[in-house]
């Protein structure tokens, strides 16, 4: 498809209290087939979606967090995490899954997908987008 747009999926909510996080991920996975310029952002409670070692046995829900690790294979390589949101919740990058993608233009070198950005930097990224999904 010649018409490539900058798509941004903004994830603002904790993973299991509502279905927004999971259904957002479903749009991202389906949308990957359209070969757009895709970015994801995790802000507010949305940063909890990426926390590693999730165990949902006690709440009887499917643990969909392993799916985030597959995003690199879908060529989703730009994952912005807002620094302030992490800090407000007492989290650091070490608490999140280590998400990577393989760069075929660099001998399939494994590269980090997560970009830790400030609120102001993220605002700049948002301003450059053409299609904003908000979950």
């Amino acid at each position: 498809m010649s018409n490539i747009k900058k798509f941004m999926y903004v994830n603002r909510r904790a993973p299991y209290g509502t279905i927004y996080a999971w259904e957002s991920l479903e749009v991202v996975l389906i949308g990957a087939a359209f070969e757009q310029d895709v970015s994801l952002a995790f802000i507010d409670d949305g940063v909890y979606q990426l926390v590693k070692g999730q165990d949902t046995a006690g709440i009887g829900m499917k643990n969909f967090s392993p799916t985030y690790a597959a995003l690199g294979d879908y060529e989703v390589t730009k994952i912005y995490v807002e620094k302030e949101s992490l800090e407000e919740r007492g989290l650091t990058l070490d608490d999140l899954q280590h998400l990577v993608w393989e760069d075929e233009d660099d001998d399939w070198a494994e590269k980090d997908s997560i970009r830790l950005v400030s609120c102001a930097e993220l605002a700049q990224v948002f301003a450059e987008q053409e299609v904003m999904f908000n979950f």
Binding site: N3, K5, F7, E26, I30, A33, Q36, F133, N134
Partner: peptide
């Protein structure tokens, strides 16, 4: 129909307007 219809909407339209 499928989610592809939403993504197509984002591609084909001048604006995607989300209510939620």
């Amino acid at each position: 129909s499928g989610l592809g219809q939403l993504v197509e909407g984002g591609i084909q339209s001048d604006r995607l307007v989300v209510f939620g």
